[in-house]
Structures are given as C-alpha cells and as structure tokens.
Amino acid sequence: MYWNSRQVTEKRTLPFAASTRDTARAALGVAAGKVERLAEQHPDYFPLYTHEGRWKHGKESWTNWCEGFLGGQMWLFHELGLGDQWRARAEHYSVLVEQRQHDRDVHDLGFVLCPTWQKWAELDGGTEQKKVVVQGGRTMALRLNDQGGFLRSFLAPDSNFIDIMMNIGIIALAALETGDDNLMAIARRHCDTTRKYLVRGDGSVSHEGIYDLGTGEFLRQTTQQGWRNDSSWARGLAWSLYGFTSMYALTGDTHLLRTAIANADYWIEHTQADPVPPNDFDEPHPTRPWESSAAACAAGGLIMLAALVEDDTLAQRYHRHAETTVRRLCEPLFLGIDPAWEGVLKHGSYHERKGLGVDESVMWGDYFFVETLARVVRG
C-alpha cells in the first residue's frame, strides 16, 4: 500500500517465471469480473466477508475497517489497463470514504485511505488527494498513548494490535509529505514499541499487547483471534512482515528491516509444506487447514522484502517463496472461479473465535491477492 512512496532504493528486481505471470494475469481477469459484478449488483456497498460465498448479508462486522479495499482493487485494475470503466469507479468508491480521514474510532485508516486516496495521489500526483492522506495520518496519530509509546487499538485504550503495523504507514506518509518531524516520531515510536513487545525472539508475533494506563508499562501479550495468548496467529505475522517492510521502505530504519527479516524467516520455516497456513501456526489440530488472506498479504510482503535486502541469497529465498504462494493461491482450490461464489479468494477467515467469515472470502484477502498479482505481472 505504501510501496510507491518508498524512500529506500530497491537493491534489485527479481523476475517471475513467464508461466507465473500468465497465471497471475488470468487470476486478475477473474478478480476484475468478480468486482465488476459486485459493483453492479450492490452499488456503493462495502462488504467485509462472504457468507456461503455471498457478499450481501447482515452478519456482525466487529469493527469498521475494510472500506478502502474495494476501491483499492479498482485502482489496481485501472493501473493495469484492465478496462476503461475502472478509473471512474475507483474515483467514486474513493470519494465514498473521503470523510474517514477524520475518523477517530478505528486504528485502520491506512487500510481505508492508502489503497484509495494514496493510490490516486500516486497515479495523478494530485495535491487534493494527498491532503486527504495527510489528514488521515494526523487523525491516526491522535491515537498515541504517550506514556506507553503506542497507538491504541479500536478495542481499548490499553491495547496495541499487531494490525496497526499495516496502518502506521499513513502517519509516516503524512510526515514525509508535510515535513512534520513530530508525526514521523510518533510513527517510529509505535514501531519500536511494537517490535519490542509484540515481536518475539523467533520472529513470531503476538496479536495484542496490554499496557498499564497509569504508567505505560507493558503488562502482557494476548490475542483476540489466535489460538491462545502465546501462540502465533498467522495473519498477525503477515501484518507484521508486510508492515515492518513498508516502514523500512519509508524510513530506512534498519531495525525495522531486521524485524521484517525475522518475520519472513519464521513465516517461511512454518509454511514449507503448504504456503497457505492455518489460522494459527501453533494450534495442534486446526479446525480448518487454510487462512488464505494471510498468505496473500505475506506474499506481497516477501516480494517487497526481496527487493530491499542486501543479501542476494535471502532475496532469492523470499522471492521464490512468494512465487510459490502466488501459484498456490491461483489454483482452483483457492481462486473463486465458480460464478456462484462471489468472492475472489476462497478459504479466508475473519474471526474464528467469533465465528465470523470463517472459510469464506474476505475483502482484505481479495485486495492483497490482487495487489500481489499486480506485483507479479509487473515483475
């Protein structure tokens, strides 16, 4: 989401096999068809997850965080030249989320505004679009718990989610655009707190950290969506891998790069048998074998990381695993080829503990899958 705004120069460009690029192009065609039907059948509707393969239902959302992913896919289809209709649609769905730049209730403004308004700004160089992103970054920065040095999650003021690493970049973008050193200090402070208390020595991560509101002292690791408090929730690791890589690209802070490398090494070590993991790496008998949205996000993070690391051997390792993941996700088992299935990427999961969107398509999974496919066809 932040890649085109990187401050760190790529070390290399690694090619994908022609067959992988062809497979990715075909999958993008499937995705564009799914999104087009969604826009036609349910205009101005922002789904979160499918129920029995259908986007339209009245089930719980838990929080309000996915509205940027539909317009984000449209911008990618436009950028890739998949049809003249995508530009107008992308602009329209971006305008629908414009007021979220002032939303102080969620920690996910990066998810909402970067696939839409940041991408719009990158493609057009528009100052008006950048203003929306800057305001979104300033709004996100208001979540800072100054004593603890973290941005609080939507759930509680003493809570820091690993998910916020996917959103902290909007504050860094606002800082870079305006020259506001205080904003950048907030973004980097949150990263430092997160890597200190939520990223473990083996590269795995905790979903959530809890802090003392009086002193800012870190108290414990816990989880909302993993198997148990000391386990490794797969999507949380993907958030961390992608988020720390993005923040390294924006800041050049090698501490963040080392964290991303640790995340990537843990991810690859635990996805050798199948690049698509279950919901939690540590659960001994997973209820379901796959959480595809985690794999889609991790693949994108690995592609970025491969372009940034100094070590050629590491770069090749990350690139190969990303390519293997993409090919796996393009198989009929995961790609929603069946017209009756309305989502793009099957076997995703939103919230297993709450029973929300389990073994379904999820909007962020579709977005990160499309974003990763776009990286492949360009590579």
Rank of each mutant, 00 (worst) to 15 (best):
T223A: 02
E323P: 07
L80C: 01
T63N: 10
K130I: 04
G336Y: 09
Y211P: 08
P15D: 05
S349H: 01
L183Q: 11
D163E: 11
V376L: 03
R138V: 05
E291S: 00
M363D: 05
L373M: 12
H270S: 04
M166Y: 13
A295N: 01
D44L: 05
V133R: 12
V376A: 06
S61E: 09
M166C: 13
G110R: 10
V106P: 10
E10W: 02
R378E: 07
G301F: 05
E371P: 15
G71E: 12
D158G: 09
P284A: 06
E40D: 07
E60R: 15
V133I: 10
E352A: 03
F111W: 14
W120S: 15
S204W: 02
L314W: 11
G68Y: 06
L142C: 07
T222S: 07
N229L: 14
L219F: 04
C330D: 06
A295E: 00
K354G: 13
T215Q: 13
P339T: 01
G357S: 06
C330A: 00
L335D: 03
E52L: 08
D282L: 02
R12P: 08
E269Y: 02
L345K: 03
G243P: 09
V30L: 15
T287C: 00
G29Q: 09
D180I: 14
R100A: 04
L345N: 00
E91C: 12
L314T: 09
V362H: 02
V326Y: 10
L76A: 14
A141E: 08
S206C: 02
V8C: 05
H102T: 09
K11W: 04
W290Y: 02
